[in-house]
Design a protein around this nucleic acid. Structure first.
Lengths: 204, 204, 204, 204
DNA sequence: GATGAATGAGACTTCATTCAT
DNA sequence: GATGAATGAAGTCTCATTCAT
């Protein structure tokens, strides 16, 4: 990364998650993050280019761990339905385990200006790559149509999961998120409409 | 709504769409909107509470026309698959017809702080209500499972459509958006996985 | 000038002379100038681009009045010796009449960075033009050598006068400056060395 | 002087000349001087009190060598006209030989705040003493008026020479400086006005 | 003597909003 | 209703300097 890291780097990231979650990105003063991290204001700038860079770096940091973890779990199953379900489930669990991070990624990260959005997208590529991999595997397995527009399918999956997550945060996490994963995964794979098959199955 | 409207109200809204699209919300100065609208800075505050209010009002204004138009078109078909397709198609067409508005709604509107997000959601309820109506009709028609979690289904549909639209804007509208509507509608209704297996299984 | 002027413009200039003289340019806070001028901090920026611009504009303002006044007085005599003497005398008197301005022009204005120096030089051209005019007139009158390097002569005159003025300010104006004008004018015109030779020549 | 000197002291001085000349005093970071000198930031403070002290010390260092050299050369001639000419010539040659130093002494050194200016003046005393010595010798030799105001004469000479030098630096050293020395020396000693005409005119 | 990571004070400027006209 | 000059709060980031090693 070419980035100077160390205990203070981590302390600042952790402090920023808390401060951003409590006050929102724009209302979070750098001096408050510094105080929360137990370092001087100037120290922040030894590790981060500016305030934006703290937000982006935090996202990078958390996202890379997150993606690695999901990759590992996904590889333990073969069915792509199961892979997708695990991915969504882990996504949701991660958010439930760290509510501050959930607020920051679902709300604060979005307040960024357009330039910053491109950086966020860059970081997201790791996660989006996971979805692509699942879809490609699905095609190889013959579960998905070889003509499937992967880019669009990926956007649908990501958009759906992200929207559910954002709603959960905005509703102040008043309900359990993880249990929704399996039905969401199902709706995405099988569609919202009922299959005529049920009748066939009923017959069987 | 107790809101003073008039030719200047509209002029300011139209000016704001242009200015926000060109510079982004945060970099758009109220004085620039005033100049673009051909009114004095202070005049803005005769029609809008503050800068945020311009953005929200613009969204309300455009959204209400938009929802009415969709409602009207949707009522001309009965199949809920067709209704969903029309809704997405019109959503996309609207964005393609007004690129400045597309930039503002897909990018700038998201940069708002958390409080403002709640107001945006309030305005969005009109659109989300359309989705709910389609889903409820679907259940009535027996096309959708009566046990379908409408709230989640609505989030999936909205999230998917919104994400596709945002990607299109961020890719600088380099491809046609409207033609994607029918396959997205399809993927949402029928799911990503192929529907042939059931038959095969039935045969087996 | 394309510059918005008015009573506040003048008030700010006057306030700045006082504040800069008292604290030095770098230690003068814009907020202090605003308070001294009886305007809000932000008002400063309706009239000046930035803090530097206040300093430069003040110099422009004072210098243009100053040059006009000298021009007028110079035109009342014909002898270039007298013209030079009047110029230096008025230069010195001006400094003695406004000690704060003297501090600012002789000391604070010099602390400027290199870019600013070029702007200062631009303003100085009015004054330097006066010297050139005197020199050219001297050549026309046959008092000065037609081969005189005007540029260098001008630099000598300006450098000498400016240095005497700066020394006077740095010595905290403990002696009268104006009375020095005539002997300085003399030294510059007749040189430092005694004029015994002419007598010898007259005798020969 | 109680000053720790050594190879690093010199390295820092030399580095500072380069860095100050390239970036200007205020834009020159201590860390950049350290890097250029090949020492750690903190090492600077083992040899210099602060950033200002680097600039002043550099000036002291260069000036003392400079004054000694001039003194030596001046003593080889007896005519005070020649002494003055040599002084100016060597002054100019020194600047032409070290353009970086020229920039620093003519431009950067002037950006100092008022307190620092007094220190600069202190260092300048060595050079000003040279001028005084020449003037006093001139009086002794009967070339200069015993009533000559030495302080003012010194200021005139220094101001003139310094202004010519500064102009040369600001014009980016586009012409040769040293050749100007003899005519400047002449103008200062003999004055700007022609000495012969009066007789001619008297005779005519 | 040498290092360099850490410190923390400090102030310019913007711009949404107001209100006297 | 319309104006636009005036307001004033607010916060990032730099960089000279220190000091534990």
């Amino acid at each position: 990364m070419g980035k100077k890291k160390g205990p203070k780097y981590d302390a600042i990231i952790d402090a920023a998650v808390i401060v951003f979650a409590q006050n929102g990105y724009h209302l979070s003063k750098v001096s408050k993050i510094a105080k929360q991290a137990g370092v001087a204001d100037g120290t922040i700038y030894l590790y981060f280019k500016n305030k934006e860079d703290i937000l982006i770096s935090m996202f990078e940091e958390k996202m890379s761990v997150f993606v690695d973890r999901i990759k590992h779990e996904i590889n333990r199953v073969t069915s792509i339905e199961k892979k997708l379900e695990i991915m969504i489930e882990m996504h949701f669990t991660q958010l439930e385990l760290d509510p501050d991070l959930a607020i920051v990624t679902q709300l604060e990260l979005r307040q960024s200006n357009t330039n910053m959005r491109y950086q966020v997208n860059e970081v997201l590529k790791g996660y989006l790559g996971l979805i692509d991999a699942i879809l490609e595997e699905g095609i190889r397995q013959g579960v998905l149509d070889p003509d499937l527009n992967i880019r669009i399918a990926r956007q649908i999956i990501f958009g759906a999961v992200d929207e559910v997550a954002t709603n959960w945060v905005m509703k102040e996490r008043k309900y359990a998120l993880t249990p929704l994963a399996s039905s969401i995964s199902d709706m995405l794979m099988k569609g919202l409409s009922m299959k005529t098959q049920p009748e066939a199955e009923t017959k069987g």
